[in-house]
Amino acid sequence: MPNAARWAATITLTATAVCGPLAGAALATPSPTALYAPSALVFTTGHGEFAAEATPERAVTLNCAPTPSGTHPAAVSACAELRAVNGDFEALSARSDVLCTREYDPVVVTVEGVWQGKRISYERTFANECVKESYGTTVFTY
């Protein structure tokens, strides 16, 4: 076999070996979970004014994509509530139907994770447990 024919055969076989598997991967359909940006959050609660000073007393997880799950006791409604405000925790407001005492026993909440592919780091101090749970409907109720 002439030298040029050998090189042509070598290049053809190499291209087939390298590009063949890639062509099959390009034609594969993506899995349903690949269509969703990740939304996975970890909530912590502790007594104190700042997260750095407070020992976490409770932690829950909340996954909202592709379906609500996690250890949050009301994952379905918490995800729906966060979707309604596009994951903006500052947009959650206190409900008017809840009456809380004016007792000052600060509770700090932190949220770390990802909401629809965007990194989230949130910290907020509430005057007491009742005030914390009055914000939104179920997001901080755990």
Rank of each mutant, 00 (worst) to 15 (best):
P21C: 08
E49Y: 09
C79K: 04
N128Y: 00
A5M: 04
Y122A: 14
A74H: 11
R124L: 05
T10K: 03
W115A: 05
P106K: 07
F50I: 04
P2R: 12
T137Q: 13
V139L: 12
F140Y: 09
E103P: 00
Y36N: 11
V60K: 12
G113P: 00
R124W: 02
F50V: 04
A78F: 00
R58N: 09
A15V: 15
W115Q: 07
A40D: 04
L99W: 01
N3A: 15
E57V: 06
G20I: 08
G70D: 07
T141C: 10
Y36M: 11
Q116D: 14
P66H: 12
R102C: 01
L82M: 14
T44F: 08
C79I: 02
N63Q: 13
V111E: 11
A37L: 15
P68V: 03
L22V: 14
P68K: 06
G70N: 07
K118S: 14
T16L: 12
Y142A: 09
P106L: 09
A34V: 04
Y142N: 06
L41A: 12
C100E: 06
A26T: 10
L13V: 02
P2K: 13
A15T: 10
A78K: 00
G113E: 09
V111D: 11
F126E: 04
A34H: 06
A25E: 13
Q116N: 13
L27T: 06
R58W: 04
T14D: 02
Y104Q: 15
A94D: 15
A4R: 09
V114Q: 11
R95K: 03
A4G: 00
R102Q: 07
